[in-house]
Every structure is written in structure tokens, then in C-alpha cells.
Design a protein around this nucleic acid. Structure first.
Length: 870
RNA sequence: GCGGACGUGGCGGAACAGGUAGACGCAGCAGACUUAAAAUCUGCUUUCCGUUUCGGAAGUGCGGGUUCGAUUCCCGCCGUCCGCACCA
């Protein structure tokens, strides 16, 4: 479609938008001090900062529009608003660009940042660009290195061996999500499990607090809190030690973790994870066991998803004694369904009361012995078939536990274990420490030095800079291959030593950027007064995909920074809002390949065809925008054609922001039309004022003028309420209503009407300002060129007197069914309403010949007549 | 399998705290303006029934319940989406 041609009386967004953007910037409208002293309430709005991939996409547009509405609204409400922007700039794509196209990662990254900054600026966001930084700036990551060394000193960091996914071709560690069907996502080579020394941040130390504090995060979505709760995964149970009947390879006992110590008498076997140290010891001397373990490992990576249910085991021949049944012994199996990562990597199997154990026992014909009796069951006949019983009940067949309810039996079993020294009650967590080592170049160097004599020595003279002269012609970590970089004398003893060549997981970078924004140029990670003033973030906005990792890591970092004296708070984000995705219809040509929306035209009957070839196209599902499906829409092109305000308005108007929205051409057109209509409407009013310079405020208002004034003030109240609760689509609807009311208002020249129309017009400008800031400035300038910037002005206040209605419409019901309405002044008495209602012909008809036995009256709302059944 | 969310016209959605369901917009239809188109403006637009003005019936995934009155509260199903996925 053609670009909208600028005409007289038509809003020329292409000229206006850059003009206002320059004006805001020149006047420093969005600047705040690190430690302000002007007495204004503070409000910190933050959207998740972008990865500089090259261009912004519609998800960014939605994210930053939402944040900007909040920021501009809060500023109008009198807050000093901190609204910064930066770049999550380290990461693998920059290295891939270097490998594929020979561009240096730094060059690629900073070029992308320049492009994307320009795109964001064209959106007209109320961002304080003076605070901008990228996480790959040495001036940022030097402080990250300092924080790490402080954490190290405080015992929040640990170096230990861990199993990792190792890509043998690329010579790098892969994250779990980079392993696809057991193969490296880039190389396609089968991934190996490798034991490597890794740096860990001890997030588990805060597990109890990270869990407990979730309750205090009242302005977080419930589902995010639930997801974090599950991820942290607290469970109460017991550790129980089972002595081996005959010690094996220096191992005399096996420790298991269980949440069901009350079912210990129902034990029928013990099972080890394939990675359990005892299993490894056995494998060393038994090839069959070694083969079984290898088989488990293979299945564990590649076919786990497909062959979920199949349980397999191997009887080691070892036997263990039972803490409560010293005369009995039980077999020790290795089983593929036991996880080394959880608990102790070993379980005791109680088939009667655990489905997995039951499946296993049935397969290998192991005994099933019920020990918990459901309420109505009979101990003599109760038996387990194919479903384990995990409900409540009374313990039986269990020696000293007999007759106790399950909860009491758990406590009794634990005390007995503790008394005889074979176990203890423990709380177990699913959360594991955070491995932050990555064998990559484009990341923040981990600032330590390895010395043969002194061990791990903290680097001095931060930052430890990345070398520029790196080569990507070999697989593996360029830092490790660099001819000189890693060689350095030990800071302690001066002998030759070696730098750590691993860099940090990029989640580290994003775990504290919100704090750095408070004082982005400080000579320490965060200036204390700035942090005290601005933190926590009042409103954080971003995608649900970060519900767990990024948000949990940031919560951990805040605690760790508190403990090391950098911050005085524990929770970084007081309010969290998670937005939905931007989706778009997808199209495929006759040959099945994806088509761009621009290539397709949709016909009246709903079918589609190729714009040029005319071949039929199938309309696919509405899906998240993705390059591979070719259903993306470029924000830059939209802004060029329709302006930033159109894009912002459509995004806000379409639906509630937490849901997925569908990007449609007609929706954009609708938004564009509304902007033009509003402009014409206000321009007409402005023109009439200019001809006859401002009428005096009239003594009284005609009913028509009063009606428009009421509409104006109702809109103020409704839009305010909607913006407070992220109801942007509702705010848009209320603004439409006010525009409609103004358009329909009588156009007489009487002073009261002119004043009232002008009030409505200026109110419209103020109400749209957070959402369409450029148009708002333009409209206000039309109405009053002397008024200054809307960006500096206060939010309008509704006059309570004008929110009262002159008349309310009562619904009149007979037996709960609507039979008519009556209009009466608010506060009318029940008797008055009843009389008036009964006089309505249609109501009278419904009541004719009936006896009213009851009358329900809700003031200013309804009156309902209940009539006798006959 | 477990956990969570959701289900309202052709579509996106609105409905304070149980009180006139469908605001507002998109799409569509009809009309005005125009040589014509675009733009703009006006009207209609949940379904069904009745001769219209107007009135009636049904209707918020399905089936029950509480209530004078249920999109809203309770019970049981069905469906969609998301998260976790052998967590002992």
C-alpha cells in the first residue's frame, strides 16, 4: 500500500516525531540524578535489556512500549522516574559471526548496538540515554570481576569438578538446551559427558530465603512464583544409611534420601543411579555392569524423551541391611530411573507406595509389601495391583510404627533413625549451584590466576581485559589458544602462572545490570546512595521465558551483593510484569515453502494467494514471529510507513498485554486512522479558538456542555484506573469514547460549549500522552502553543462533582428477567423507583394479575419484582 | 503423568465487589459525498421467532448446584495453551 501522503490538515508524523524526540532530548526531560534531592517520589521502570542481535523485533517494540507508558504515566503523576537502557552484549552469536564472516565480535556487537539504538530512539521512548552501557564494556565488566572476587572472599564461590555436556568437535561446553537429540547443535557431533573443573556460585546457600521471600513478591505474577517455587523444590524427608552386608571398594554403606521414612518397612530393594560412585566402582571390575551403565548414559541423552516409561535395572549381587530389620537384607540394583543429581543418587524401593518402584518391582519380580492402609481398607485383604497407593492412611506391617498415621510415623521413624545413628531428618532442595564457567571468548573473563605453588589467586589490576587479537580459525576457546594472553606471573610468588581462560555465563552479566543503572559511571559497582535511593526496581517488564533463570539469578545476586556490602536489599524487583508474545499469521506457497506476509494478498473469502504469481497460498497458524516461518514484521518499516505512535497505539489497543497479540495489517491501519481522526478533530477546535481568542469561563453550562464535561472527567477517571492496572486496551477504549463524545458534541459558538470542547480536546492530548507521546505534544501545541511540553506536565485530575450522573438508569426485572428500564436521579428511594417501574407498560404487562411477594432493590442499579409462583 | 492458566459475537476483547452481557475496536453490509476510486461521514451488525414501530425466546465451552438474579460463586466433565517432566 502507498505511503499516506501528507496533506494540509493531516498529521505529518514523519516530520513531527523526530522533532519532538529532539526536543525531549535537548531539554533533558528524562534525566534524573543518581541521588536526587528534589523531594519527588522515586519510580524505577526497567524493561529487560535486549541482546544486540542486529535489528529490533516486534517483541522489543511491545516490551519497550509497555515500559514507556508506565514511565511517562508515573512521571506525569509526579514521580522522578529512572528509565534506563543498555545491552546484554556478550554471547555466542558474536563469535559465530566472527567464525562465519570474519567480523570481530566487538565490531559486530557495537555496530548492532548503534543500529538498534537508532531504532529504539525512533520509537520515542522516554529513556535516559546518558545511562546507557553494554555488558561488554570494560567499564561494566571490571566491576563484575570485582564483585566475583568479593563473592570469592565471602565464600559464595566454589571451584569443583562437574559433569558437563562436551562437544568434541567444537571443543566447548554446551548448555542443556544446546544439546539436541544427544548431539551438539552446531557440530552435530554426539555429545560426551565430561568431568571438568568449573566455577560455581553458591546459590543453594540462599535456597531457603529465595523460597520464603517469594511470598513477599506480591506484585509478581502468581505463575512465575509457582515456577520458581517448583524450581527451588524444597522437600522434607530423611537420609538413611544402609550398611552393606559386605563392604565393597572401601564403601561400607549406601545413603539414600527419602520423603517417605514411614514406609521403610515396605522396602524391597535399593537402587543406585548409574553415575553413583559405587556403581562406577563395580563397573571397573564387571564388564556387564559397565555395559549397562554405558547403555543408560546413551539412553539418558538421546532417547530419554521417546522411551520415557521403560524402567531398566541391573542386580549387582550386593546386599544391604535394614536399619529397622537387622536380620534381613535387600538386593542392591543399578536403575536407570534414579537420578544422581537429586538427593544422594540412591533410593530405597518401596513398590507398594511409589509408582516408579512398583513398575520396577513388577518388571523384575521383586516383592511388594503394603505398609500404609487406606481409611476404608481391610488389613487382611488389602493388596496392591498395578497402582501404588500414595495417599494417607495408617501404618501397618511395620513393627514399632504400627497404628500411627503416616505423618506421625514419619516423625517416629526419623527419631528412631537418629537414635540408632543410621539416619536423620533433612530438608532437601532441587536447586543446584550455578555453574558459570564457559569455554568461550566473547564473555567476561573470570578474574583469577592459577599458580602451581599458590593455587587459585585473585587477579589484580582489574579489569582483566579480553585480548583483541584473537583468531577463530580453530575450534575451541580462542583465549586458550592465544599465544601470550594466558601467561602471567603469579601475583603472589612471581613464578610463571596461567590465567583462567573461561569466561562467565552471560546470565551473570544480566544479574546485576539493574543495580548498575543507578550509578552507571561510578568507580565502584554501585554507588551506595544511588542504590539506596533507586532500588528496588518498582516495575520490571519482560518476557515470561525468563521466569526462572534470569529472575532467580538476579534474586541471588542481590542477596550476594547484600552480603558483600554492595547493596542493602534482598529483592531486586518489587513489581514484575510478563508480556505475551507478538504473533502473526503464516503463509505457505503451493510448494510448501514459507512466504512473507508482503508476498501474499488475502481475498475476501478468507483464502490467500501469491501477490505476483497468483498461485494459491495456504494460511497457516498464527504463530510467534520467527525468521524461519517468514512471518516477521519489521518494526523499522512500520515506523517509517505509519510512525512510532501508530505502532505503539496498535500494540496497546489490541488486547491485554499479558496475552499473546496478533499483529495484523488492518489493526495497524485502524490505529493510523484513529491518529488522523484525532488530529483533525483537535485541529478543528484549535482553529475555532484561534479565530476568537479564548472565551471567558462561563457562569453556567448548558445540559449539552455539561454532558461533554462529564464525559471528559469520566474518561480521566477511567483511563487513570486502567493505566494503574496495566489495562492499556481498556484505556484505549475509554479514549475512543471521549473522542466520539467530542466529535458528536454540538458545535455551537456559545462560550460554555467552546470552553468545554477545548477542555475535552486538551484532556485527550493529556490522556494519550503516555501511549502516543508525539501526537500528544502536537495536539497540545495546536491548542496552546505557549503551554510547553506535555512531557513536563501533570496528569489531569477528574473533578468528583462531574463524575456523578444526573440520572441513573435502573434495570427493572420481574423474576430476574429484564422487562424495562427507568431513568431517575441517583439516590432515588426504593418506593419512588418501584412506583415508576410499575408504571412502565412492559413491566405492567409482566406483572398483570400477579402478586408481588418480594421486591429486591439495589440502589442506583436494579429493582427486581418476585411474583407468586401461581 | 503432575502443576498452572484460560474458554464470551466472524475476530481482538469489555463487564467495579453476584445486578441491563457483548463497551471499544477490527472485519463485514448498506447509504452519503465523488465522473470514479481512495479518504471521510452516517446507519446496521449475537442467534432464533413473531407482520413492522416493537415484542418474545435462547445465549458467556458442556452438565448440575446455590441465589430474586450467575460470564462472575460451588461441584463434575470437555477442550486449548503454557511450565515441569522418573525430584524418591
Amino acid at each position: 500500500m502507498a505511503s499516506p501522503a501528507p496533506e494540509p490538515q493531516r498529521y505529518d508524523f514523519a516530520a513531527a516525531e523526530p522533532r519532538w524526540q529532539r526536543e525531549w532530548e535537548a531539554r533533558g526531560c528524562f534525566r534524573v540524578a543518581d541521588s536526587p534531592a528534589d523531594g519527588r517520589r522515586k519510580y524505577y521502570v526497567l524493561e529487560m535489556f535486549p541482546y544486540p542481535s542486529g535489528r529490533i523485533h516486534m517483541g522489543h517494540v511491545r516490551n519497550y512500549t509497555l515500559g514507556d507508558v508506565v514511565a511517562r504515566y508515573q512521571r506525569a503523576r509526579g514521580a522522578a522516574v529512572l528509565h534506563p537502557m543498555g545491552w546484554d552484549a556478550f554471547g555466542l552469536p558474536a563469535e559465530n559471526a566472527a567464525r562465519e564472516r570474519g567480523i570481530h565480535p566487538a565490531r559486530w556487537t557495537y555496530d548492532n548496538i548503534a543500529t538498534m539504538r537508532g531504532e529504539l530512539q525512533r520509537m520515542g521512548l522516554s529513556i535516559e540515554w546518558a545511562r546507557e552501557f553494554a555488558t561488554c564494556d570494560p567499564s561494566y565488566y571490571r566491576h563484575q570481576q570485582a564483585l566475583f572476587l568479593d563473592f570469592l572472599k565471602a565464600g559464595l564461590v566454589e571451584r569443583r569438578e562437574a559433569w558437563v555436556n562436551w562437544d568434541p568437535v567444537d571443543h566447548t561446553v554446551l548448555a542443556n538446551e544446546q544439546v539436541i537429540d544427544g548431539r551438539g547443535w552446531r557440530s552435530g557431533a554426539p555429545v560426551e559427558k565430561k568431568l571438568l573443573s568449573q566455577w560455581f556460585l553458591k546459590i543453594t546457600r540462599f535456597a531457603p530465603d529465595l523460597l520464603a521471600a517469594l511470598e513477599t513478591l506480591e506484585r509478581w505474577p502468581e505463575r512465575v512464583r509457582v515456577m520458581q517455587e517448583k524450581w527451588i523444590g524444597r522437600s522434607e524427608g530423611a537420609r538413611v544409611r544402609f550398611p552393606l552386608a559386605a563392604p565393597k571398594a572401601d564403601i561400607a554403606e549406601i545413603e539414600v534420601y527419602t520423603t517417605r521414612p514411614d514406609t521403610l518397612y515396605g522396602m524391597s530393594f535399593l537402587a543406585l543411579a548409574p553415575e553413583h560412585p559405587l556403581a562406577a566402582a563395580l563397573a571397573a571390575e564387571n564388564p556387564e555392569i559397565a555395559a549397562f551403565i554405558a547403555e543408560c548414559r546413551r539412553l539418558g541423552t538421546s532417547e530419554a524423551v521417546i522411551e520415557t516409561a521403560e524402567k531398566r535395572g541391573f542386580d549387582t549381587g550386593l546386599r544391604v541391611r535394614h536399619p529397622f530389620l537387622p536380620e534381613q537384607s535387600f538386593p542392591v540394583w543399578i536403575a536407570n530411573f534414579v537420578l544422581m543429581e537429586y538427593g544422594t543418587g540412591a533410593i530405597f524401593g518401596c513398590p507398594a507406595h511409589d509408582q516408579r518402584d512398583l513398575d520396577f518391582a513388577r518388571k523384575y519380580r521383586l516383592p511388594v509389601r503394603p505398609v500404609v492402609l487406606p481409611a476404608e481398607a481391610d488389613a487382611a485383604t488389602f493388596a496392591i495391583a498395578e497402582t501404588a497407593y500414595d495417599g494417607p492412611g495408617v501404618v501397618f506391617n511395620s513393627g514399632f510404627l504400627d497404628g500411627l498415621a503416616a505423618d506421625a510415623a514419619k516423625r517416629a521413624a526419623i527419631s528412631e533413625l537418629e537414635r540408632c545413628g543410621l539416619g536423620a531428618g533433612v530438608v532437601n532442595w532441587r536447586l543446584r549451584d550455578w555453574g558459570v564457567s564457559r569455554q568461550r571468548y566473547w564473555g567476561c573473563p573470570i578474574p583469577v590466576i592459577h599458580c602451581e605453588a599458590c593455587g587459585v589467586v585473585p587477579a589484580r589490576d582489574l579489569p582483566v581485559l579480553l585480548p583483541d587479537d584473537v583468531s577463530f580459525d580453530r575450534p575451541g576457546n580462542p583465549l586458550d589458544h592465544h599465544p601470550t594472553w594466558k601467561h602471567i606471573p603469579c601475583p603472589e610468588c612471581g613464578r610463571p602462572a596461567r590465567r583462567e581462560t573461561d569466561t562467565f555465563d552471560t546470565f551473570v552479566d544480566s544479574s546485576w545490570y539493574f543495580a548498575r543503572f543507578c550509578s552507571p559511571r561510578a568507580e565502584m559497582p554501585v554507588a551506595p546512595e544511588a542504590a539506596r535511593h533507586w532500588l528496588p526496581v518498582d516495575q520490571y517488564i519482560g518476557g515470561i521465558e525468563h521466569a526462572i533463570l534470569h529472575l532467580l539469578y538476579s534474586r541471588f545476586f542481590t542477596r550476594a551483593m547484600h552480603e558483600t556490602g554492595h547493596l542493602a536489599i534482598d529483592e531486586p524487583f518489587a513489581g514484575l510484569f510478563t508480556q505475551g508474545m507478538v504473533t502473526h499469521a503464516s503463509y505457505r506457497g503451493a510448494d510448501g515453502r514459507w512466504l512473507y506476509p508482503d508476498e501474499v494478498e488475502t481475498l475476501a473469502d478468507g483464502t490467500a494467494r501469491h501477490r505476483e504469481t497468483g498461485e494459491a497460498a495456504s494460511v497457516g497458524r498464527v504463530e510467534a514471529m520467527s525468521k524461519s516461518k517468514r512471518n516477521t514484521v519489521d518494526p523499522g518499516a512500520i515506523i517509517a510507513r505509519f510512525g512510532a505512535d501508530t505502532a505503539r497505539w496498535f500494540i496497546l489497543a489490541d488486547n491485554p498485554p499479558e496475552r499473546d497479540m496478533e499483529w495484523t495489517e488492518s489493526g495497524v491501519q485502524g490505529a493510523f486512522r484513529f491518529i488522523q481522526r484525532l488530529y483533525r478533530l483537535v485541529a478543528d477546535i484549535a482553529a475555532e479558538e484561534a479565530a476568537e481568542r479564548g472565551p471567558e469561563a462561563p457562569e453556567s453550562f448548558s445540559p449539552e456542555a455539561r454532558a461533554l464535561r462529564q464525559a471528559t472527567h469520566r474518561a480521566i477517571a477511567a483511563v487513570t484506573e486502567a493505566l494503574e492496572s496495566f489495562g492499556f486496551n481498556v484505556a484505549v477504549a475509554r479514549i475512543h469514547e471521549l473522542a466520539n463524545a467530542l466529535a458528536e458534541a454540538p458545535s455551537g459558538a456559545e462560550a460554555d460549549l467552546r470552553v468545554t470542547r477545548r477542555e475535552a480536546a486538551i484532556t485527550l492530548a493529556r490522556l494519550i500522552a503516555p501511549m502516543m507521546p508525539h501526537l500528544a505534544e502536537e495536539l497540545q501545541t495546536l491548542l496552546d502553543p505557549e503551554a510547553g511540553l506535555i512531557a513536563d506536565q501533570a496528569w489531569p485530575e477528574a473533578d468528583p462533582a462531574l463524575l456523578l450522573r444526573d440520572q441513573v438508569i435502573f434495570a427493572v426485572q420481574v423474576m430476574g428477567k429484564l422487562r424495562g428500564t427507568v431513568a431517575l436521579p441517583p439516590g432515588s428511594a426504593e418506593a419512588v423507583v418501584a412506583a415508576q417501574a410499575k408504571a412502565e407498560p412492559n413491566v405492567a404487562k409482566a406483572l398483570a394479575g400477579k402478586r408481588v411477594v418480594k421486591q429486591i432493590f439495589v440502589p442506583d442499579r436494579i429493582i427486581n419484582f418476585v411474583i407468586a409462583a401461581d
